[in-house]
């Protein structure tokens, strides 16, 4: 009898605790985002289609050395790289070693690529065929590929998913340059606009 009462009390208590949890959730901040009105801020974790990484010296120019290894590795055959000779002033004496996919079954076949000798004329990704396996990103000897955070990408036309990543990199670099200019202009405006407030403080 006493055991039954404690058991019933435990059951009722657990119901009350559950009601408390859902009751509190009613007044808590919502954890979802209504997409067209707002967007999530954690896209850093998003693995979208691949994109080219800009070189350290010139962000508009890809790091890619046009070795073609990504083309070899891609199981879907969705990457097409057209090569051209790079401008003479970019040429270095450094080499990086690229491995052919042949190495997985047969003794690895290496070939060395001179950095700055060649560059991609066009770097075309057919995103409609890509399965986002990441073999190209993982195997790029120059570290010239990464996943983009391009999440809101939709179209009715299949042709829109054939991307020239080199053009895209140039556009991104131009956007970044303009954003940086705007930021600097804003900083300068603030600095000249309120010299008193800034001057009044001492930094030690």
């Amino acid at each position: 009898m006493f055991g039954a009462i404690t058991k019933a009390y435990g059951a009722l208590k657990s119901i009350a605790v559950g009601l408390g949890i859902t009751g509190r959730a009613v007044f808590q901040e919502q954890s979802t985002v209504i997409y067209p009105m707002a967007e999530v801020k954690n896209l850093g974790h998003y693995r979208g289609h691949i994109e080219l990484v800009g070189s350290d010296a010139d962000p508009a120019r890809p790091r890619c050395v046009a070795c073609g290894q990504c083309m070899d590795m891609c199981p879907s055959g969705c990457i097409t790289v057209e090569t051209a000779m790079a401008p003479a002033e970019l040429k270095t004496n450094a080499f990086i070693r690229a491995e052919s996919i042949m190495g997985q079954l047969t003794p690895a076949a290496h070939f060395d690529v001179m950095i700055g000798e060649r560059e991609p004329k066009r770097f075309v990704l057919d995103y409609s065929a890509c399965s986002l396996c990441g073999q190209c990103v993982r195997n790029c000897p120059a570290g010239a590929l990464r996943f983009s955070t391009h999440a809101y990408f939709l179209s009715r036309d299949r042709a829109d998913f054939v991307l020239d990543l080199k053009e895209r990199l140039a556009g991104q670099a131009e956007q970044a340059r303009q954003a940086e200019q705007a930021r600097q202009a804003e900083q300068a405006r603030q600095a000249s606009g309120s010299p008193q407030a800034e001057g009044g403080r001492t930094h030690e």
């Binding site: 859902t22 959730a25 009613v26 808590q28 919502q30 954890s31 979802t32």
Partner: peptide, 10 residues
């Protein structure tokens, strides 16, 4: 609405 708010969605 209650279902949504209990699960922290609108």
């Amino acid at each position: 609405k209650v279902a949504g708010r209990c699960q922290r969605r609108p």
